[in-house]
């Protein structure tokens, strides 16, 4: 039995003639301790998929099984790192993490809770900024707070919804390493949603492309057989990496082309040409 299982998931927004089927026939199973990445275009329904797994949304039909039990609402066992950080701006870094920890471990004393907060803030190396508010932090620092908040609840599975999408390449690379580091240390199951193929290959054991919506569905999976710890510079020369990368990109490009040819609507442009300024004055 897989750790997380999605069986024949369909998700429709709206009703009757206004209905849009965002996801259709999604089947996915993730084993314990695995790091899976789902790669897709923007607007292909990635966030909807994430919200189905973390319990913020319910599928129209089909079932999401977590450890064999159907998912009902959110749970502390599945930590979420949101795309837009979603820190509470009126709380400091420490308070943001503390709020999560307090909910996750209601029985612990304040001292123990503070120790957990300090540990995880240290883990993302934000101890000097623990008393700052989100608006005083850079984008990368904010996302690290979000990572600390999700991990401090000690979830069994961690779900990341394009966590690094809004960051610059350098910060992105650093945070990828940090997340991998923590994942390696605590060996949790991880699901990463991303639009960056390289990021997926660098971080995950398996990559599954999401064919764009409406009617988004999962494509064939690609296994990444590159030994951990992976090195970014070395990886670029790795034949296996190149091959996988090309295969995935080719697959996604094909989807893109397919989509283009699908749109049969033709736009007739008016027959216009720029005025001839030179001849005008002759």
């Amino acid at each position: 039995m897989a750790y997380l299982e999605l069986n024949n998931i369909y998700k429709t927004y709206g009703q009757d003639e206004h209905a849009t089927e965002v996801l259709s026939n999604i089947n996915l199973s993730i084993e314990e301790g695995e790091f899976v990445a789902i790669v897709g275009f923007t607007g292909s329904g990635k966030t909807t998929l994430v919200n189905l797994i973390n319990g913020l949304l319910e599928p129209t039909s089909g079932e999401v099984l977590f450890k064999g039990e159907p998912v009902q609402g959110t749970s502390h066992e599945r930590g979420v790192i949101f795309q837009n950080y979603s820190l509470l701006p009126w709380l400091t870094v420490g308070q943001n993490v503390f709020m999560a920890v307090k909910e996750a471990f209601p029985k612990k004393s304040k001292k123990e809770l503070n120790a957990i907060v300090a540990e995880y803030v240290e883990m993302v190396s934000l101890t000097p900024a623990i008393n700052k508010r989100p608006k005083e932090l850079s984008g990368g620092m904010r996302q690290r707070v979000a990572v600390a908040r999700a991990l401090a609840m000690k979830p069994e599975m961690i779900i990341m919804d394009e966590p690094l999408g809004a960051l610059d390449a350098l910060t992105r690379g650093n945070l990828q390493d940090e997340i991998l580091n923590i994942w390696g240390k605590e060996k949790r199951t991880a699901l990463l949603i991303t639009n960056d193929v390289d990021e997926g290959i660098y971080m995950a054991d398996r990559i599954i492309p999401l064919r764009p919506g409406p009617n988004a569905t999962l494509g064939p999976e690609f296994k990444i057989d590159i030994e951990r710890p992976r090195d970014k510079t070395e990886m670029n020369d790795n034949a296996n990496f190149k091959q996988t990368r090309n295969a995935i990109i080719e697959y996604l490009m094909d989807i893109g082309n397919e989509r283009k040819s699908e749109s049969s609507e033709e736009f007739i442009l008016p027959d216009l040409s720029p005025k001839d300024f030179v001849n005008q004055f002759k």
Binding site: L56, G73, T74, F82, N84, S86, L88, A100, E103, M153
Partner: peptide
């Protein structure tokens, strides 16, 4: 909505 999602994911009680 982001804040509400945070509250849901953290499973905050109504009062909280």
């Amino acid at each position: 909505k982001d804040y509400i999602n945070v509250a849901k994911v953290l499973k905050l009680g109504n009062f909280q």
